[in-house]
Design a protein around this nucleic acid. Structure first.
Lengths: 202, 202
DNA sequence: GTCTATAGCCAGATAGAC
DNA sequence: GTCTATCTGGCTATAGAC
């Protein structure tokens, strides 16, 4: 027998969809209520205020994304394997949740101090191990000299930007939604090839 | 003798600052009026509505960014020169206007159909010439085989993402504002090196 | 827990004097 | 063109019945 989804859960799911599309300012409590097929006053009953509902959604979103960075970058694999796994996994994940990166970055730009709060969370990614590994691999002569911060920024940029910049990129390269989807699919492997070609010493 | 700035211009400049920080939904007409040191009702006198004022700001922002793509990608230089010039110029420009990319992409994600309107503008960038050039250079054996769309996306990603993702990246790599600024400065040359290393056949 | 009704506020927009 | 005063609608939030 299928368990009914509780009202609280229905609200959270509806709030995710609406906030991810419209942002904090653009979202309307009434729209969330409609989306959840639930009375508007119940939103306040369960979450007290729009602000608190928003924070619940934001934290859930962040905690879905952040651990993936930890999971992949803090293993004992070679950096080449890490770059491959990250690009493949992250792109696959993003294709399923294309609004997430835009949502998170938009809200962090609106309120940059919020990052400080996130850093104190235990799930906030640490890239220390990855940085040490880069420096070691440079010393061993397996990759060309590169600053670990720059490489890290490049990896994230190449994986995340295609989703945030999608509307613009579709216009520039004159692609339909379907064609763009194909381009994204190819990036699961193309991005790591592109990075590795750049840093690997042959 | 210094010419006074007209009220209309003062409003537009103030509106740029406020909209770029807060977005369409988050911005307040009163705040724009304060910022411009002008009476709130004058905003409506000159621009009729918030929506129209916003569109004026958005188009001005887009028309500042888009022509740079045309200007650099539609010359007769080698692709290596183009990638170098673009990375250097774009990053320099962004350091002066760090909110622009986030503003534009946020609003395009909010309203993706707006891109169609922009495409009909004469200033909308065409990357046809650049794509042909990539394909030719691949044929000549000077760079490894790569799809021109993917390379184009990579160039934009590496140049633009560090600005959109700044709050998050600062947290990940644990950098102060000043340290992050230094990292960005270095990218004026590091980004093109990174790309060229990846595609050039030695 | 769920509903209806409404309070209370705030923002965009306008009227009209100067 | 610029100002003050005000209207109007929409939105968050709560009171209170069931």
């Amino acid at each position: 027998m299928i368990k009914d989804i509780s009202a609280e859960e229905k609200i959270l799911n509806a709030a995710k969809r609406v906030f991810e599309n419209k942002g904090m300012e653009g979202a309307r409590m009434q729209e969330i209520a409609n989306e959840a097929k639930i009375n508007k006053s119940l939103l306040h009953y369960y979450y007290r205020s729009k602000q608190l509902l928003f924070e619940a959604v934001f934290k859930a979103a962040f905690n879905k994304l952040a651990p993936q960075i930890n999971k992949i970058f803090n293993t004992d694999e070679s950096i080449f394997e890490k770059i491959k796994n990250f690009s493949d996994n992250y792109t696959s994940f993003m294709i399923k949740h294309p609004y997430l990166p835009n949502f998170i970055l938009q809200e962090l730009n609106r309120n940059p101090d919020f990052v400080k709060e996130l850093i104190s969370t235990k799930s906030f990614p640490s890239i220390k191990k990855f940085q040490d590994q880069i420096n070691d691999t440079v010393k061993k002569g397996e990759i060309r000299p590169i600053e670990s911060e720059q490489l890290f920024i490049n990896i994230l940029a190449l994986n995340i930007f295609p989703f945030i910049g999608a509307p613009l990129l579709k216009g520039f390269i004159n692609a339909t939604d379907k064609e763009y989807k194909t381009i994204l699919e190819r990036r699961k492997t193309d991005v790591s090839d592109f990075i590795i070609q750049s840093i690997k010493l042959k």
